[in-house]
Each structure stands twice: as structure tokens, then as C-alpha cells.
């Protein structure tokens, strides 16, 4: 990529005038637009192609078939896991939206350097290793974890509880915490995009702080925040490790099901079909997010 970019730069500085469409320029254009397109599209296309291939006795026969998709839509357990995962991601995104909005709003209301310091702090988990974060969550929620120790020390419970680990609550808690920074940043940006003068104008027109929030801040920041939450949902959809590691026997998600087809069953066509189902879902969500974001910009 770097060499392609520098070739384009060199072209504009020492090459023939811009209006001269030299063959070299066309090549550079092709490289600049083509290489990333190919690099992104090629693997996706191969997935798509694989999902229509027939596999018999562990060997891909090369015949085209819809059987892989049929298998998904007819299988109770894969459908169940798929919708369970979508629901989980939705809940995680909703929690991230809710908590993320509150945190972003509080940070946004601050002034001076504390504001950016806190924002930086809230984004810091993004640079932490993801597995480390899961382990950290588990050491908080776990049987002899921080939460239990705290509750026991404060006399609320007598023996460590398994209420916070290896169940759906744990999955939602852990994922919400892990994905919160992904929510905080877009929401903060959505708030930051609201011109200060609009708030002044609202106050000037007689709105009290609560009215300003409801009539100006919320409607203007909500679309961007929802778009941010949808992206959290997209990331959460693909995460199978967190549910696996904190969800106990209820931590099975669609990503893990896809993985099992590739890594364990060696049934790539079926795995690819499952992956395409997830991909279509993700694309739909991203489309929805950008639609909301665009509408927000226009409005």
C-alpha cells in the first residue's frame, strides 16, 4: 500500500500534467483502488463460493449446491444459536449504548484537560489484549473473584456466589464492559459534534438544562450513538471467546459454531455458509448504521 501511495505522489509531482491520462497513471489508479478491493473482496468471494460447494465424505466434490444453507435453515440448533447470538449482541449493544451514553455525556460535560484525560482513560482498554480483558473480567466475577470477596467482606453474602459467573448474566456483564469503550468513543464524538452555540441558543430561548438535554442534545446525539451501538453489536456478534470463557455451559455462540466447522469438523462449505449468514447480518447492520448516521448528518 505504501509503495502504491508513494507512486501516486511521485506521479503528481514529477509526472505529466494531470489532464494527460497516461497509461502509467491508469496503472497507478488500478493499483490504488484495485489492490485493496481485491484484498478485501477475494477472501469474501472465496467464502461465498465455498458456501455453495458440496462436501461428501470430508471431500469437497466441486458440485454446486444449496444444501449448506438448507442445513442451516432446517437445523433447529444452529438457528437457535444464531438467534441467541443476535439477541446477545443486541443486548450488549443496548447496554453499551445506555452506559456508554451516560459515561460519554458525563465526560463531555467536563471542561479542560480532565475531559480528554478521562476520555483517554476510557479508551485505554482498547489497547489491552482482548484475552487479558476476559481473564480480568473473570477474576472480578469469578467464584473467588473480587466481586464475591467484596460482597463477603461487606457481609452481604456468607459464601461465594456463582451468580456472577458462568451464566448469561456474566456474558452480558463481561461483554458490556469489554465493548463499552467501543460505545463511548462514537457517542462522545456524536456529542462533540453538537455545536456549543446550539446549547447556548436553547438556553437563550428559555430552556432549562433538562429541557436542553431532551430537545437538543439527545435528538442530535442519538443517531450517532445508535450507529455506534450498532457497531458494538457487529463486534459482539463475532465474539465467541468471551461467552465461551465467562458464560459457562450457556456460553455457546454462533461464532463458535462457525469455528467448529472449520477447526474441528473440516466441513468448510457448511462453515462458509454459516459465515455468509453472519456476514449478511453484519452487512445489514452496518448498512443500517450508516443510514442512521447519514440521516443524522443531513438533518
Amino acid at each position: 500500500m505504501m509503495t502504491v501511495v508513494s507512486a501516486e505522489l511521485a506521479d503528481t509531482s514529477v509526472g505529466p500534467p494531470r489532464w494527460l491520462a497516461s497509461p502509467g497513471k491508469i496503472v497507478v489508479r488500478l493499483l490504488v483502488y484495485g489492490v485493496p478491493t481485491v484484498m478485501i473482496l477475494a477472501p469474501l468471494m472465496s467464502f461465498l463460493a465455498y458456501s455453495f460447494l458440496e462436501q461428501k465424505d470430508n471431500i469437497v466434490t466441486g458440485h454446486l449446491t444449496l444444501a449448506n444453507y438448507a442445513a442451516f435453515f432446517q437445523s433447529g440448533s444452529y438457528l437457535y444459536v444464531f438467534f441467541g447470538t443476535v439477541k446477545l449482541a443486541f443486548v450488549v449493544a443496548t447496554v453499551a449504548l445506555f452506559l456508554g451514553y451516560i459515561i460519554s455525556y458525563l465526560i463531555w460535560r467536563l471542561e479542560g484537560s480532565t475531559r480528554y484525560l478521562l476520555l483517554l482513560l476510557s479508551a485505554l482498554p482498547l489497547v489491552m489484549n482482548y484475552v487479558v480483558k476476559i481473564y480480568a473480567m473473570r477474576s472480578i466475577l469469578g467464584f473467588n473473584g473480587f466481586l464475591n470477596s467484596f460482597l463477603m467482606a461487606s457481609g452481604i453474602i456468607n459464601a461465594p456466589s456463582k451468580l456472577f459467573i458462568f451464566n448469561q448474566t456474566a456474558v452480558m456483564l463481561a461483554m458490556a464492559v469489554i465493548y463499552l469503550p467501543f460505545g463511548i468513543l462514537p457517542i462522545f464524538l456524536a456529542l462533540e459534534r453538537i455545536p456549543q452555540s446550539l446549547l447556548s441558543a436553547a438556553a437563550d430561548l428559555g430552556a432549562k438544562p433538562g429541557q436542553i438535554f431532551l430537545t437538543v442534545i439527545l435528538p442530535l446525539s442519538l443517531p450517532g450513538s445508535i450507529a455506534g451501538a450498532l457497531f458494538v453489536m457487529v463486534i459482539a456478534l463475532g465474539d465467541y471467546l468471551t461467552p465461551q470463557m465467562v458464560g459457562g455451559s450457556e456460553g455457546f455462540t454462533f461464532g463458535r459454531a462457525i469455528w467448529s466447522q472449520f477447526g474441528m469438523a473440516f466441513n468448510w462449505p457448511f462453515g462458509a455458509a454459516l459465515a455468509v449468514v453472519l456476514l449478511v447480518t453484519v452487512i445489514a447492520l452496518i448498512g443500517l448504521a450508516s443510514l442512521i448516521a447519514r440521516k443524522a448528518r443531513l438533518g
Binding site: R138, G142, F143, N144, K162, M245
Partner: peptide, 24 residues
């Protein structure tokens, strides 16, 4: 068996970490 299972652990370290944390 599933009713008894606290977790289907994901790997070597994961299993050790869950067991070592107690309650197993």
C-alpha cells in the same frame, strides 16, 4: 451432564484458570 457443568472451557490455560479460581 450439561446440568452439572459450570463451563465448557476453551483451552489448556482456560481450564486451569477456572479450576484454580475455586468452586470446581
Amino acid at each position: 451432564q450439561k446440568a452439572n457443568v459450570a463451563s465448557y472451557y476453551a483451552g489448556f490455560d482456560d481450564g486451569v484458570s477456572i479450576f484454580a479460581q475455586g468452586g470446581i
